[in-house]
Protein backbone atom coordinates (compact mmCIF):
# COMPACT_ATOMS: atom_id res chain seq x y z
CA UNK A 1 0.00 0.00 0.00
CA UNK A 2 1.20 3.45 -0.80
CA UNK A 3 1.66 5.59 2.24
CA UNK A 4 1.54 9.35 2.22
CA UNK A 5 4.45 11.31 3.57
CA UNK A 6 2.56 14.50 4.42
CA UNK A 7 1.55 14.67 8.08
CA UNK A 8 -2.04 15.29 9.17
CA UNK A 9 -1.44 18.79 10.61
CA UNK A 10 0.43 19.81 7.49
CA UNK A 11 -2.36 18.51 5.25
CA UNK A 12 -4.95 20.42 7.25
CA UNK A 13 -2.86 23.57 7.10
CA UNK A 14 -2.58 23.31 3.32
CA UNK A 15 -6.35 23.06 2.95
CA UNK A 16 -6.82 26.02 5.26
CA UNK A 17 -4.13 28.11 3.60
CA UNK A 18 -5.51 27.51 0.13
CA UNK A 19 -8.95 28.75 1.09
CA UNK A 20 -7.54 31.83 2.83
CA UNK A 21 -5.40 32.64 -0.18
CA UNK A 22 -8.37 32.27 -2.51
CA UNK A 23 -10.40 34.60 -0.32
CA UNK A 24 -7.67 37.23 -0.46
CA UNK A 25 -7.90 37.10 -4.24
CA UNK A 26 -11.67 37.51 -4.04
CA UNK A 27 -12.86 39.72 -1.26
CA UNK A 28 -16.59 39.53 -1.97
CA UNK A 29 -16.81 36.19 -0.25
CA UNK A 30 -15.75 37.87 2.98
CA UNK A 31 -17.38 41.26 2.64
CA UNK A 32 -20.84 40.33 1.39
CA UNK A 33 -22.05 38.51 4.50
CA UNK A 34 -20.79 41.34 6.73
CA UNK A 35 -22.56 43.94 4.61
CA UNK A 36 -25.70 41.83 4.83
CA UNK A 37 -25.31 41.64 8.61
CA UNK A 38 -25.04 45.45 8.92
CA UNK A 39 -28.02 46.01 6.62
CA UNK A 40 -30.27 43.56 8.44
CA UNK A 41 -29.43 45.28 11.72
CA UNK A 42 -30.34 48.62 10.17
CA UNK A 43 -33.80 47.33 9.26
CA UNK A 44 -34.94 47.03 12.86
CA UNK A 45 -34.67 50.66 14.02
CA UNK A 46 -36.33 51.66 10.74
CA UNK A 47 -39.13 49.12 11.10
CA UNK A 48 -39.75 49.63 14.83
CA UNK A 49 -38.55 52.87 16.30
CA UNK A 50 -35.24 54.65 16.95
CA UNK A 51 -36.07 54.85 20.66
CA UNK A 52 -32.90 53.75 22.59
CA UNK A 53 -34.77 51.93 25.36
CA UNK A 54 -36.60 49.75 22.84
CA UNK A 55 -33.48 49.16 20.76
CA UNK A 56 -31.61 48.07 23.85
CA UNK A 57 -34.31 45.49 24.63
CA UNK A 58 -34.28 43.98 21.18
CA UNK A 59 -30.51 44.31 20.57
CA UNK A 60 -29.51 40.72 21.56
CA UNK A 61 -32.20 39.26 19.35
CA UNK A 62 -31.39 41.53 16.42
CA UNK A 63 -27.66 40.83 16.55
CA UNK A 64 -28.18 37.10 16.82
CA UNK A 65 -30.84 36.75 14.15
CA UNK A 66 -28.69 38.92 11.89
CA UNK A 67 -25.62 36.82 12.57
CA UNK A 68 -27.54 33.60 11.98
CA UNK A 69 -28.88 34.79 8.62
CA UNK A 70 -25.51 36.15 7.50
CA UNK A 71 -23.81 32.89 8.45
CA UNK A 72 -26.43 31.00 6.42
CA UNK A 73 -25.80 33.24 3.45
CA UNK A 74 -22.07 32.56 3.59
CA UNK A 75 -22.58 28.79 3.85
CA UNK A 76 -23.85 28.60 0.31
CA UNK A 77 -20.33 29.16 -1.01
CA UNK A 78 -18.59 26.65 1.26
CA UNK A 79 -18.41 23.71 -1.17
CA UNK A 80 -20.18 24.91 -4.31
CA UNK A 81 -17.13 26.24 -6.18
CA UNK A 82 -15.05 23.22 -5.15
CA UNK A 83 -17.71 20.89 -6.47
CA UNK A 84 -17.94 22.71 -9.79
CA UNK A 85 -14.23 22.88 -10.55
CA UNK A 86 -13.50 19.33 -9.44
CA UNK A 87 -11.28 20.17 -6.46
CA UNK A 88 -13.80 18.59 -4.09
CA UNK A 89 -13.30 15.28 -5.89
CA UNK A 90 -9.57 15.61 -5.48
CA UNK A 91 -9.97 16.41 -1.80
CA UNK A 92 -11.75 13.09 -1.24
CA UNK A 93 -9.00 11.31 -3.18
CA UNK A 94 -6.10 12.92 -1.34
CA UNK A 95 -5.63 9.78 0.72
CA UNK A 96 -5.84 11.84 3.91
CA UNK A 97 -8.89 11.36 6.15
CA UNK A 98 -11.64 13.40 4.50
CA UNK A 99 -13.30 14.44 7.78
CA UNK A 100 -10.03 15.87 9.00
CA UNK A 101 -9.52 17.95 5.84
CA UNK A 102 -13.12 19.14 6.01
CA UNK A 103 -12.55 20.21 9.60
CA UNK A 104 -9.73 22.43 8.32
CA UNK A 105 -11.90 23.68 5.50
CA UNK A 106 -14.72 24.55 7.88
CA UNK A 107 -12.27 26.34 10.12
CA UNK A 108 -11.11 28.41 7.14
CA UNK A 109 -14.73 29.13 6.37
CA UNK A 110 -15.29 30.36 9.93
CA UNK A 111 -12.22 32.62 9.74
CA UNK A 112 -13.59 34.12 6.53
CA UNK A 113 -17.28 34.36 7.41
CA UNK A 114 -17.73 34.02 11.17
CA UNK A 115 -14.86 36.12 12.39
CA UNK A 116 -15.83 39.19 10.30
CA UNK A 117 -19.29 39.04 11.92
CA UNK A 118 -17.67 39.01 15.35
CA UNK A 119 -15.58 42.04 14.38
CA UNK A 120 -18.60 43.90 12.98
CA UNK A 121 -20.76 43.20 16.01
CA UNK A 122 -19.55 46.18 18.14
CA UNK A 123 -20.74 48.54 15.40
CA UNK A 124 -24.20 47.06 15.54
CA UNK A 125 -24.16 47.01 19.33
CA UNK A 126 -23.36 50.73 19.35
CA UNK A 127 -26.08 51.40 16.79
CA UNK A 128 -28.62 49.61 18.96
CA UNK A 129 -27.62 51.56 22.08
CA UNK A 130 -26.20 48.49 23.82
CA UNK A 131 -24.06 49.29 26.89
CA UNK A 132 -20.32 49.17 26.24
CA UNK A 133 -19.64 46.58 28.98
CA UNK A 134 -21.68 44.01 27.10
CA UNK A 135 -19.58 44.16 23.92
CA UNK A 136 -16.94 41.72 25.17
CA UNK A 137 -19.52 39.06 26.01
CA UNK A 138 -21.34 39.75 22.76
CA UNK A 139 -18.20 39.14 20.74
CA UNK A 140 -17.25 36.05 22.69
CA UNK A 141 -20.72 34.56 22.36
CA UNK A 142 -20.74 35.35 18.65
CA UNK A 143 -17.30 33.80 18.19
CA UNK A 144 -18.45 30.55 19.83
CA UNK A 145 -21.89 30.61 18.22
CA UNK A 146 -20.78 31.31 14.66
CA UNK A 147 -18.28 28.49 15.12
CA UNK A 148 -21.11 26.09 15.91
CA UNK A 149 -23.08 27.47 12.97
CA UNK A 150 -20.15 26.87 10.62
CA UNK A 151 -19.86 23.26 11.72
CA UNK A 152 -23.58 22.49 11.64
CA UNK A 153 -23.88 24.47 8.44
CA UNK A 154 -21.09 22.56 6.74
CA UNK A 155 -23.23 19.42 6.97
CA UNK A 156 -26.18 21.25 5.42
CA UNK A 157 -24.00 22.81 2.72
CA UNK A 158 -22.60 19.41 1.79
CA UNK A 159 -26.04 17.76 1.84
CA UNK A 160 -27.58 20.29 -0.52
CA UNK A 161 -24.67 20.12 -2.98
CA UNK A 162 -26.11 17.40 -5.13
CA UNK A 163 -29.65 18.70 -5.09
CA UNK A 164 -31.61 21.12 -7.18
CA UNK A 165 -32.34 24.58 -5.64
CA UNK A 166 -29.76 24.43 -2.91
CA UNK A 167 -29.93 27.76 -1.11
CA UNK A 168 -33.47 27.87 0.28
CA UNK A 169 -33.24 24.20 1.10
CA UNK A 170 -30.01 24.83 2.98
CA UNK A 171 -31.83 27.29 5.25
CA UNK A 172 -34.66 24.82 5.84
CA UNK A 173 -32.17 22.18 6.96
CA UNK A 174 -29.89 24.34 9.06
CA UNK A 175 -32.28 26.75 10.81
CA UNK A 176 -33.99 24.19 13.08
CA UNK A 177 -30.60 22.78 14.06
CA UNK A 178 -29.30 26.28 14.77
CA UNK A 179 -32.03 27.21 17.23
CA UNK A 180 -30.10 26.15 20.38
CA UNK A 181 -27.23 28.42 19.29
CA UNK A 182 -29.64 31.30 18.90
CA UNK A 183 -31.18 30.65 22.30
CA UNK A 184 -27.90 30.50 24.22
CA UNK A 185 -26.17 33.22 22.23
CA UNK A 186 -28.96 35.74 22.55
CA UNK A 187 -29.35 34.85 26.22
CA UNK A 188 -25.65 35.40 26.95
CA UNK A 189 -25.82 38.77 25.21
CA UNK A 190 -28.99 39.68 27.06
CA UNK A 191 -27.47 38.81 30.43
CA UNK A 192 -24.34 40.82 29.70
CA UNK A 193 -26.45 43.82 28.74
CA UNK A 194 -28.29 43.64 32.04
CA UNK A 195 -24.90 43.65 33.75
CA UNK A 196 -25.18 40.00 34.83
CA UNK A 197 -22.48 37.36 34.46
CA UNK A 198 -23.21 35.30 31.36
CA UNK A 199 -21.01 32.31 32.19
CA UNK A 200 -23.80 29.71 31.98
CA UNK A 201 -24.85 30.19 28.35
CA UNK A 202 -21.26 30.84 27.27
CA UNK A 203 -20.13 27.49 28.66
CA UNK A 204 -23.07 25.81 26.97
CA UNK A 205 -22.07 27.43 23.68
CA UNK A 206 -18.50 26.25 24.22
CA UNK A 207 -19.75 22.70 24.87
CA UNK A 208 -21.82 22.82 21.70
CA UNK A 209 -18.80 24.06 19.76
CA UNK A 210 -16.71 21.11 20.95
CA UNK A 211 -19.50 18.66 20.19
CA UNK A 212 -20.18 20.06 16.73
CA UNK A 213 -16.48 20.31 15.85
CA UNK A 214 -16.08 16.64 16.79
CA UNK A 215 -19.12 15.13 15.13
CA UNK A 216 -20.08 17.34 12.22
CA UNK A 217 -16.95 16.77 10.07
CA UNK A 218 -17.84 13.07 10.00
CA UNK A 219 -21.35 13.87 8.79
CA UNK A 220 -20.00 16.43 6.34
CA UNK A 221 -17.58 13.86 4.93
CA UNK A 222 -20.41 11.38 4.43
CA UNK A 223 -22.50 14.09 2.77
CA UNK A 224 -19.67 15.17 0.48
CA UNK A 225 -19.23 11.59 -0.67
CA UNK A 226 -22.95 11.38 -1.42
CA UNK A 227 -22.75 14.59 -3.46
CA UNK A 228 -20.03 13.05 -5.64
CA UNK A 229 -21.99 9.87 -6.35
Amino acid sequence: MTTLTTSLPRAAWLVLERDLRLAFRRWEQVTHPVMFFLMVATLFPLALSPEPALLRTIAPGVVWVGALLSALLALESLFRADLEDGTLEQLTLSGQPLAWLLLAKTLAHWLLSGLPLVVAAPLIAAGLAAPGEAVGTLMLSLALGTGVLSFIGSVGAALTLGSRRGSVLLSLLVLPLAMPVLIFGARATDQAMRGEVADGPLWLLAAMLILSATLSPLATAAAVRVSLE
Binding site: L22, R25, R26, E84, D85, G86, T87, E89, Q90
Partner: peptide, 8 residues
Amino acid sequence: ENAMKADL
Protein backbone atom coordinates in the same frame (compact mmCIF):
# COMPACT_ATOMS: atom_id res chain seq x y z
CA GLU B 1 -12.91 19.00 -14.67
CA ASN B 2 -9.29 19.97 -14.26
CA ALA B 3 -9.64 20.42 -10.47
CA MET B 4 -7.73 23.69 -10.49
CA LYS B 5 -8.66 27.00 -8.89
CA ALA B 6 -9.05 29.67 -11.55
CA ASP B 7 -7.68 32.38 -9.24
CA LEU B 8 -4.47 30.55 -8.41
